[in-house]
Simulated assay, not measured.
Amino acid sequence: MDNRSIIRRPFRYRYYNAAFGIIIVNIVFFVFNTISPQSRYYTALIPGLIIGKGFYWQFFTYMFTHANISHIFFNMLGLFFFGTQVERRIGSSEFLLFYLLTGFLAGLFSFIVYTLTGMYGAVLLGASGAIFAVLLAFAVYFPYANIYIMGIIPVKAPLLVIGYTAIELFSQLLSINSGVAHLTHLAGFVFAFFYFLIRLNINPIEVFRGGRRR
């Protein structure tokens, strides 16, 4: 890694359970939003409010806001299983930057698309964009790991990432389950890919092909 580049300058390795901290923040947001459902008006990402009222914090708070118990449960389950492993591999500071930046960029990208298509009242919420980014990171660092679908069917991590990407792409193109922000999921994958290329100098495609490893 080129230490002369500010973009690629590494953090000193430290591990302080950032993934668990993120889970706790999500739970706090969920409890708050459940007690006061109107609060989602302020914490979800709504293009009309960002443009009209300057609610710019929504680019970050949307990824800590969830619709219901199953929504937060499965996102936090993914963060627990995959995020903790990625964090141990790259360190907590790098993991926090990776998670928050990819989540922010996925939200920003969705905001731009919603705005250009006139969907000012769209409501984007959930950690899925950042979680999909974490899933790609897990596949890059643990390309031979088996992930058991439904606890039964073993699938190599890179194949699972490719499969998820294909499903999300077709779902977006065919408008299947329009309540799910497939575009945000795909953006999470894409921005994670570029994070590896630009920040970490790792090409995920080469890793998946069995080439360069880190």
Rank of each mutant, 00 (worst) to 15 (best):
G78F: 14
L79V: 10
F80V: 14
F80G: 14
F81D: 09
F81E: 07
F81G: 08
F82T: 03
G83E: 05
Q85Y: 06
Q85S: 13
E87A: 10
E87H: 14
E87W: 14
I90S: 08
G91C: 09
S92W: 06
S93M: 06
F95M: 02
F95C: 00
L96P: 00
L100G: 06
L101G: 04
T102G: 07
F104K: 07
F104P: 05
L105Q: 12
A106V: 01
G107Y: 11
F109S: 15
F109Q: 13
S110G: 09
F111K: 10
I112G: 12
I112T: 12
V113C: 04
Y114C: 13
Y114E: 10
Y114S: 13
T115K: 07
T115R: 09
G118Y: 06
A122G: 09
V123W: 11
L124Q: 12
L125E: 15
G126P: 05
S128W: 12
G129D: 08
A130N: 11
I131R: 07
F132G: 00
A133G: 15
A133K: 10
V134H: 07
L136V: 03
L136K: 10
A137I: 01
A137M: 01
F138R: 05
F138H: 04
A139K: 01
V140L: 01
V140T: 01
F142T: 00
P143L: 04
A145E: 12
A145R: 14
N146M: 15
N146V: 04
Y148P: 00
I149P: 00
M150T: 03
G151F: 00
G151A: 03
G151S: 05
P154V: 02
V155L: 11
K156D: 00
P158V: 00
L159R: 08
L160K: 02
L160Q: 03
V161M: 11
I162V: 05
G163H: 09
G163N: 09
G163D: 04
A166S: 10
A166H: 06
I167P: 01
E168Q: 12
E168F: 08
L169N: 04
L169C: 04
L169E: 01
F170Q: 08
F170T: 11
Q172C: 00
Q172W: 01
L173Q: 02
L173W: 01
L174I: 00
S175C: 02
I176K: 07
N177L: 15
S178V: 10
S178G: 05
G179L: 03
V180Y: 08
L183M: 08
L183N: 14
L183A: 08
T184K: 15
T184Q: 15
T184D: 12
A187W: 07
G188H: 07
F189I: 03
F189A: 02
F189W: 11
V190Q: 02
F191Y: 13
A192Q: 03
F193A: 02
F193V: 02
F193K: 03
F194H: 06
F194A: 05
Y195W: 14
F196T: 08
F196G: 13
F196W: 10
L197D: 12
R199V: 03
L200R: 14
